[in-house]
Amino acid sequence: MNKEHKQAVLGLTLVIPSFLLLLVVVVVPIIQSFLESLQSEAGGYDLSRYAYLFTDKGMRANIRFTLEITVISCVLVLLVSYSLAIYMRFSSGRLVDWIRKTYLIPLFIPGVIATYGLMNLFGNHGWLSRWLALAGWEMPWVIFAAKGIVLANLWFNIPFATMLLSSALAGIPSSVLESAKDVGAGKLMIFARILFPLSYKTFLVALTFVFMGVIGSFTAPFLVGPNSPQMLGVAMEQVFGVFREQEQAAAIAVFTFLLCSALGVFYIRSMAKEEAERR
């Protein structure tokens, strides 16, 4: 065996464990649910389950609602995370120290508990509304509405996105920023021309994580979301567990997977482009 062959065997051996795992827990279930979603009510194979997704009024509303919530959550999470990360990168003092020490805490609080906490805080008779009532203000309805889901998503996703972005920003050498300042670049210019391009890759990673996390979320939308329209995760559970229509649930699952893979393709392509440029 020559060296090249040895290398190839070594490579394959290293890949096999993760490949097997992926095959068993990801690839096979996807194929199974795809096949299941093609079964029509009459027993044959066609696209009727997918047609239902786009013809049923309630389902259409669910899809639109899910996309809205996901886009709004992604924008807000990344805005807040970027600001936080930049603030932590360039400021010092006691407040920043405290933020640095505490901003990861939400990651360690289980989802159900955090959701109940949010309900207690923002609920119609929650703490916030009681404090506001002292000042004579009335609290708008947040829980059991889209706003509640967005709030929960902010809570769940900001810490991780901030962590990713601040590590990216920490990798940008101060000398670059200082020389930019010396030639008269403003704050906005520094962000647009230096900070953002240099952390773009991490930004994409963070966006992918937030998008996937939000679009497939269940606990928060189930507990604080409205009864209708529902997010796709909740609708999927209802169709599967309550209406007991496995095939329809499989169709929703495959559709959600397609939505996620659209972003996945975009992510992989821009990564590949960057790799190619580097060579």
């Binding site: 009024k57 209708s228 209406f243 007991r244």
Partner: peptide, 14 residues
């Protein structure tokens, strides 16, 4: 019961 839930979701909730 299943049918009731289904119709409730489309007629009452939505």
């Amino acid at each position: 019961g299943k049918e009731i839930n289904k119709r409730w979701q489309s007629d009452v909730a939505a």
